[in-house]
């Protein structure tokens, strides 16, 4: 009896870990694309917050969840365009300009929420989409194939992003420009176009990540993301700039969060210990940064603005 109960809890924990990993995965896939092209965006958390609010508000008004996702993506694309302009055309320092995006997004999403919504009202999340046949399998079915559509989209993006980066001309251009923009430019690849598109798509994914988070939680509040965007940036380092690595990192983080949540609910560990466990994501990130820095090299042109002949 207690055995099957334990199995149930483990299955539920893993399933919720996969759900919690989804916003991390979307945001860090986007950040990975931008960094591969040589641009660091520290503003992911701000973009996620704006995407989250936009999606929440759209769903509140229209009850259309897909519209919510689109609004999230749209806001992300818009901020991406702006960020591309200040970093690529105006050569803003990438180490700090993202902090501006973060503070702006944090403030703006809160302002809009308080002015347009005021008291939080919940929205209905996506119904789980049960994959025929597969979802019927015991244990595995419940863990992997009874999620909302956005979870499947996020995980489908992993092979798509891998394919684009490694099997298409565009992906080759992105990687070449992240390593050596001079050489790519001399071969006639447009550094501007490639970086612009990578940043805009990357921010669109961050907006989608925020939308996914707000819809999954069914609510918006001030600082909803609670630094998830910053962890997503770190996950790119954790995953050594590869979509698959980023996915593994996101799953680890989703699972850690899910386990911490379960422990809190069941009171398995004292409160102080679960507070300590809340530090786990940040500490794991730091350890990962140390390991990765030893073994992998970041794109050579990361954070360096490109000036022809400069």
């Amino acid at each position: 009896m207690s055995d099957s109960f334990a199995v149930m809890i483990i299955v539920a924990t893993i399933a919720s870990g996969i759900r919690l990993a989804t916003p991390f995965l979307l945001a860090s896939l986007g950040e990975a694309l931008g960094q591969r092209s040589g641009v660091l965006n520290l503003g992911v958390d701000g973009v996620m917050l704006l995407g989250a609010f936009g999606a929440y508000y759209a769903v509140l008004q229209t009850s259309n969840l897909y519209l919510g996702l689109l609004v999230g993506i749209g806001l992300g694309l818009l901020i991406g365009l702006f960020y591309a302009f200040i970093t690529l055309n105006l050569h803003a320092e990438q180490g700090v300009s993202g902090i501006g995006i973060y503070l702006f997004g944090l403030g703006m999403s809160d302002l809009l929420f308080q002015k347009l919504v005021g008291t939080p009202r919940p929205i209905l999340p996506f119904m789980p989409l049960e994959i025929p046949v597969l979802s019927g399998f015991p244990i595995v079915g419940e863990m992997l194939f009874q999620h909302s559509i956005i979870v499947y989209i996020a995980f489908a993006l992993v092979p798509i992003m891998s394919f684009v980066l490694h099997r298409t001309t565009y992906g080759l251009n992105v990687r070449a420009i992240g390593e050596n923009p001079e050489a790519a430019d001399s071969l006639g690849v447009s550094v501007m176009f490639t970086r612009y598109s990578a940043i805009i798509i990357g921010n669109g994914l961050a907006g989608l990540a925020g939308a996914a988070l707000a819809i999954e939680l069914g609510i918006f509040q001030q600082n909803l993301t609670n630094a998830m965007g910053f962890i997503a940036i770190a996950l790119v380092y954790f995953g050594a700039w590869s979509p698959k690595g980023v996915m593994i990192g996101s799953l680890v983080f989703g699972l850690v969060q899910s386990i911490v949540l379960q422990c809190k609910t069941f009171g398995v560990i004292p409160r102080s210990a679960s507070d300590l466990a809340s530090m786990a994501p940040a500490i794991i990130t730091i350890l990962a940064l140390v390991v990765v820095a030893k073994r992998f090299k970041q794109p050579s042109a990361l954070t360096k603005p490109y000036v022809r002949g400069g």
């Binding site: 200040i86 902090i99 501006g100 995006i101 702006f104 944090l106 403030g107 703006m108 809160d110 302002l111």
Partner: peptide, 20 residues
């Protein structure tokens, strides 16, 4: 909301980096 402060801070930084 006091969040307006954050908006101003963010804008100030963008404008500065742009004007630079």
């Amino acid at each position: 909301p006091s969040a307006v402060t954050g908006i101003f801070q963010g804008l100030l930084l963008f404008y500065l980096l742009a004007a630079d």
